[in-house]
């Protein structure tokens, strides 16, 4: 216990009756001790909430697409845009370490897109999305797809302000991915199992993968899709439309 004010050393102490945390200074022999108890990701979190508030007010459904490299995210997105846009207005933010290859593919579908190159960075953060949205100017009630950097580790920690986090796994990966990368699955809201047309040729057990995912996450929607053949895509579109329908802009 702190002898100066009686706090228990974790930043909680009593003023009047209410316990609360705040900046709290003690004098140490050499220098002053400042108790902060500040979340290291607080800055990102705050900006993410600002993004979320903007999306909510405009009725925009923002989706953070995360996966390993090569799961077919961009192909899935291309097909989705071709089928939904412009009836449902779509906008895209593309995140990659380098090149504008993916943005070029999206632009070819006629959907407005902004490419973010993270350089050495391994994930998108709320600030990058904030800056991109200002360029992109997504319209009211639109779907905003944010394709994160292909990486199942780092993007898990960074809230972008999305309405939902969509994890994409393909059957050419191991079905034990949820156990190997639990943080990403833990933070996801829906899981798309892509390249399902290849299932007969690979050693991937859908049931096992779903069971593993349930162990580490609260995901309740698993949709088996093939961006190449179109299998299962309607179910994905229904989910998107239901999500978009729930997001109503402030007039």
């Amino acid at each position: 216990m702190c002898i100066t004010c009686g706090c228990n050393g974790d930043g909680h102490h009593l003023h009047g009756q209410e316990p609360h945390t705040h900046h709290h200074e003690h004098t140490a022999r050499d220098g002053r001790v400042i108790t902060l108890e500040q979340d290291i990701l607080q800055k990102n979190q705050l900006l993410a909430e600002r993004n979320r508030g903007f999306f909510e007010a405009r009725g925009i459904t923002a989706l953070n697409l995360v996966s390993s490299p090569g799961s077919g995210k961009t192909t899935l997105l291309e097909r989705t845009l071709a089928d939904l846009h412009p009836d449902t207005p779509c906008f895209v933010i593309e995140g990659d370490q380098q090149t504008s290859c993916d943005a070029d593919r999206i632009r070819a579908t006629g959907v407005p897109v902004v490419q973010i190159n993270t350089g050495k960075g391994c994930h998108l953060d709320a600030e990058m999305v904030n800056a991109s949205v200002k360029h992109l100017k997504p319209t009211q009630d639109a779907l905003l797809f944010i394709e994160n950097v292909g990486n199942l580790v780092c993007p898990a920690m960074f809230d972008l302000g999305e309405s939902a986090r969509v994890i994409i796994i393909s059957v050419t990966e191991g079905d034990d991915k949820p156990l190997k990368y639990p943080d990403m699955f833990h933070s996801a809201d829906i899981c798309l199992i892509n390249k399902i047309d290849l299932l007969p040729y690979v050693n991937f057990h859908v049931d096992k993968m779903i069971e593993y995912a349930r162990q580490v996450s609260h995901i309740d929607t698993f949709i088996q899709v093939s961006a190449t053949t179109g299998q299962g895509m309607d179910e994905w579109y229904s989910w998107l439309k239901e999500k978009a329908g729930a997001a109503v802009s402030l007039e």
């Binding site: 974790d10 930043g11 140490a28 050499d30 220098g31 002053r32 001790v33 400042i34 108790t35 902060l36 108890e37 500040q38 979340d39 290291i40 990701l41």
Partner: peptide
């Protein structure tokens, strides 16, 4: 994931 405290001069 927090900064608990700092000693400053």
């Amino acid at each position: 994931l927090r900064v608990h405290a700092l000693t400053v001069h």
